[in-house]
Amino acid sequence: MADKLERVVVEAQVPLDYTYNYRVGPYIERYIKGLGDKKILATKCPQCSKVAVPPRKECGVCNKIMDEWVEVGPEGVVDNYTVGHVKIEKGLVENLESPALLAMITLDGATVPLLAEVKGMAPTDLKKGLRVKAVFTDPAEDSLADLSHFEQVG
């Protein structure tokens, strides 16, 4: 019985995904309701005048509550962008048939850029400084998806 023991590795998969239900809080709640009316709402810091979209409560720089609501957009300027040749699904990289355009857009009246998809244009035309306009889902679905994507202005 004094055989040298073989070291065994056992493998297991746990065939589950756990669901979490997150309360969005009053800021995102009001933002989503605004999207249903084709309005993009933001909050403003009373001290540094930062205008945050999506809206949030705290300005960490000034330690103030951002309690002033303002409407921003629907047009804005591309600040930064990337052309995706892949998508990442559940952590795995998959090739895309046609590239997807992703941009950081500073909406008119906002100071914090919003990450969004840009559609309806050639990847090579996507540039910094390009003016784009929000496209809303119609009819509205009462969710964050109501801000569907952006398109080039004109």
Binding site: Y20, Y22, R23, V24, G25, I28, P54, T82, G84, V86, I88, V93, L102, L115, A116, E117, S143, L144, A145
Partner: peptide
């Protein structure tokens, strides 16, 4: 952020 970024599902480590 699970109440926004994970919902709009655009951002990942590589992009």
């Amino acid at each position: 952020n699970p109440t926004y970024d994970r919902q709009v599902d655009l951002l990942n480590e590589v992009n």
